[in-house]
Design a protein around this nucleic acid. Structure first.
Lengths: 224, 224
DNA sequence: TGTACATCAGTGAACGCGCGTTCACTGATGTAC
DNA sequence: TGTACATCAGTGAACGCGCGTTCACTGATGTAC
């Protein structure tokens, strides 16, 4: 695992009870976010209140408020990476059709965005502001795309690796672009036609599949 | 033009010189944004310095800092709407192929994002935080999608209007999702394969076209 | 098992900083007669 | 054309507010002998 996905709390806990405090704070922060409160709205005071801790205890464990959110980001991405890897293993052995494969990955993404909606929104906004958060997001993306490109490549033996990579990358950003868009707009419906999660999976899969096929299946390779 | 796209400065100017101040402030704000400074980094002090004005003069014209950004948003969307309408007229008379039509709209979007990169980033982040900004963005989207659906519908006479609308909406969000994604990540390259604007237009058009065709061309209509 | 001492952990009142906003004042423009 | 008065516009020092962060202190745990 690379640098940016490593935990780095300020003061390593040396007693159990401080480890406890650390954990309680993380849990409380997640809970407050899950309740729909935005990150800037969540004050240190609120966090320590919810975690039955104190301001001083907080700062003994975390350098600052930002560090806490970074830890949540790392946690989320760790879990995401695990799920992704599981899906890779599954696909590697089962060798499903392109359609089924793409749908599997899109479904994982959609569900993760649903489960971690509020944390993801907080992170998305941070990413727009803070290079550290951004770097971590980029790294996760790249670690996911690599093996994805391999799997997709098996369905298009004649396509050049570079074209496969390019297609998978754009397919990836298509999916996450839409998901982030929905996150940003939250409850406000941008579109007239509402889609539930299953329908969204269906549409996104269709879009990605159509695009990837158009780019890689036809004999004329994209670049001249 | 609807409510949310109306200008509303606090105090209507009654003399020419105050209109001047108003304009100078708007220009200065745009200039500061264009220089790459983020909205929170741009202080009122910096704005009035750049516009050779003063703090008090600022507050005589604008209710607060937010109002100023709202005015910039309205300005941007007005221009965007004009461009979109021009493109509609063009397409309505020239009746190009679906491919050419989609490419035309995607190109307009990509260019606009390039030209107004920094303002758009500032707005994107505000949209994630502030419901007013969000509402305005949604309205622009819906006003653009309506006529787009009509044009696309002409290419798929047999498709149901509702399916056409759904397809156009998802096509739209595909494009803007990717563009917003790129905006958010800014200079940090998410993908290994770099795309310049023309290539991006090419890829996005391909994606949208493939998707729309897949959804509307085949006899089996999407919904059961 | 007891005592002394060192380190770790927790407490919350007080601080401070940055920036948006206000406000008392001066200057400019317009209008009435 | 001139004078008096009202309104508009501009000035910038001072204010204030919210929240993250610090810090002096108390309490808990571990260790040495």
């Amino acid at each position: 695992m690379s640098k940016t996905l490593e935990l780095r709390w300020v003061t390593p806990a040396k007693q159990d009870r401080s480890k406890d405090t650390h954990a309680r704070v993380l849990t409380a922060a997640r809970a407050l976010l899950a309740r729909g409160t935005s990150w800037p709205e969540i004050t240190i005071a609120a966090i320590v209140r919810a975690s039955r801790s104190s301001v001083g205890a907080f700062y003994a464990r975390f350098r600052d408020k930002d560090t806490l959110l970074q830890l949540l980001q790392i946690e989320l991405y760790r879990e995401g990476l695990v799920t992704a890897m599981e899906t890779f293993e599954l696909v590697k052995s089962a060798r499903p059709s392109l359609q089924v494969m793409i749908e599997a990955f899109v479904r994982v993404a959609v569900h993760s965005y649903r489960d971690q909606e509020h944390l993801r929104r907080a992170l998305l906004l941070k990413i727009g502001t803070d290079a550290d958060f951004r770097a971590r997001a980029v790294e996760l993306t790249q670690q996911t795309i690599q093996p994805l490109a391999v799997l997709v490549g098996r369905h298009f033996a004649k396509a050049r690796p570079r074209d496969v990579l390019a297609a998978v990358e754009l397919g990836h950003v298509l999916v996450y672009g839409v998901l982030d868009q929905r996150l940003l707009f939250g409850e406000t419906p941008v579109t007239r036609v509402r889609l539930d999660d299953d329908e969204l999976v269906e549409e996104l899969s269709c879009a990605v599949r159509s695009y990837v096929k158009a780019r890689l299946a036809s004999p004329r390779s994209s670049a001249k």
